[in-house]
Design a protein around this nucleic acid. Sequence first.
DNA 1: CTCCCGATAT
DNA 2: ATATCAGGAG
Length: 211
Amino acid sequence: MRKAERAKVIYDRLAKRYPSPEPALDWTNPWELLVATALSAQCTDERVNKVTPVFFERWPEIKDAAAADVTEIEAVVRSTGFFRNKAKNIKAAANRILDVYNGEVPKSMAELITLGGVARKTASIVLSNAFGINEGIAVDTHVKRLAFRLGLTTKTDPNQVEKDLMPLYPKDQWGEINHFLVFFGREVCPARKPKCDICELNDICPKKGVK
DNA sequence: CTCCCGATAT
DNA sequence: ATATCAGGAG
């Protein structure tokens, strides 16, 4: 089967499996989603969702995070790992948004990735989920692994995986395909023990059973 | 390429 | 003990 054809089958079957995908990260506004996504690096969303309520109770708005003591932020986000980088980046991002973007989370890829700790993956999540803007496909560990196993890419660098995926899907599906692959990756095709025996993509998967 | 880094599963 | 988790920067 051709790659483009396989890509469409993957989308159709996962759309049937996930009729209305709920975002895994608990967010209500762009800034909260930005912080939650920044905290999600190399950390389960379950853990992120335990930290964010504490964070936003202590620092409800962007200006609060901008003025916060970094060591206090570190203490709150500690359990998500990489806590020094994350705390510093969040505070710096808050200040830049206040100083450069009039206190509003910017709505473009080019502007978002000027914030420290924000690259294409985090920017794509914020753009598609908070603003409904599809400028990129968020390639996280799940998307990367599934795209490779399903034969949609041979690359390992996330930015190159994204370049392989983008022509395979219309823009209005870019947010969904990320959600589909993340949830399906967690439930059926995790890094360690993929459940190929119950996988509804088994018949079109070039790497069934392969690490 | 290396480093950042805690929590959990295996 | 090791691998992995909704990554990003130097």
